[in-house]
């Protein structure tokens, strides 16, 4: 497995898209930190970017990588390797390379800027952690979609639709249901609904670490009570991990059944 991760990773590290992705975050990091006088504001803007972009990039790269490495995959399939090794290895290769682009792309400006206050470091690390989680989740989802769809265009379409669903449509439906069921107690509903979508969950995790937590508390203390405690943080991280684990398990399962 490690060999596959290594080769997929090397392959990606040489592709120009990885550099573009890395350079994008590097630029973004420098621009935000050095043109903004407040670090916490930079963190908020970064959050907006990470919440939207890492899932999208993870999805697109995931699908593209899978389809582009089809022949390579067939080459590997004829080698004495387990199928799950091949696919999970390629998955990790991609997810790790995207995560590193993110972590270094944003980390380098941050180190250069030299904001080493503990609270800022913590916020920033959480941001990166969430970005890494989102990359892993969406690459896994994209792999699943690509594995189930031989037709590239269809696979690509479904993947984009999946992203759109989780990033936009889900929130739209969430918002509308909150407004429609205005008269009912909505605390638990909104807590659960936001836990189920990895993008929403990541967003709220970061929001609560920024000073906006009180704003969320404004609607009822449930959110703050839940996410404010270590139980809340731990269960959020568990939910995010499950979003990684289940798609990977499905990759393993699907790859065993698939004909090439």
């Amino acid at each position: 497995m490690f060999k596959i991760i290594k080769y997929s990773f090397y392959d990606l590290m040489r592709s120009r898209w990885s550099y573009i992705y890395f350079a994008f975050y590097l630029l973004l990091g420098f621009v935000l930190l050095f043109l903004n006088n407040s670090v916490s504001k930079a963190v908020i803007t970064l959050m907006n970017v990470i919440i939207v972009l890492t899932p999208l990039i993870g999805t697109i790269f995931g699908v593209m990588f899978y389809y582009n490495s089809r022949e390579f995959t067939e080459l590997l399939l004829a080698q004495p390797l387990k199928r799950s090794t091949i696919f999970v290895g390629q998955y990790f290769g991609l997810a790790i390379s995207l995560s590193l682009s993110l972590a270094f792309g944003l980390g380098i400006p941050f180190i250069v800027y030299g904001a080493f206050e503990s609270s800022v470091i913590w916020n920033f690390s959480l941001l990166i952690l969430v970005g890494v989680f989102l990359s892993f989740i969406f690459v896994a989802l994209a792999f699943n979609i690509a594995l189930s769809n031989e037709n590239r265009i269809k696979g690509f379409g479904i993947a984009i639709l999946m992203w759109l669903l989780l990033a936009v449509i889900y929130d739209g439906a969430f918002l509308i249901s909150l407004m429609v069921f205005d008269d009912y107690p909505l605390d638990k509903f909104s807590l659960i609904t936001s836990m189920l979508n990895p993008i929403d969950l990541s967003r709220i995790l970061i929001l609560l670490k920024l000073d906006i937590s009180a704003l969320l508390g404004y609607t009822g203390a449930v959110f703050q009570q839940f996410f404010g405690t270590s139980l809340g943080i731990i269960s959020s991280l568990i939910v995010l991990s499950l979003w990684v684990v289940f798609p990977i398990l499905r990759i393993v399962y699907k790859s065993k059944k698939k004909d090439f």
Partner: peptide
């Protein structure tokens, strides 16, 4: 109108 919707603060849909 619906204070609970604050949980969607800074989401793409809201933007």
């Amino acid at each position: 109108k619906t204070p609970e919707t604050i949980v969607l603060l800074r989401s793409l849909f809201v933007d």
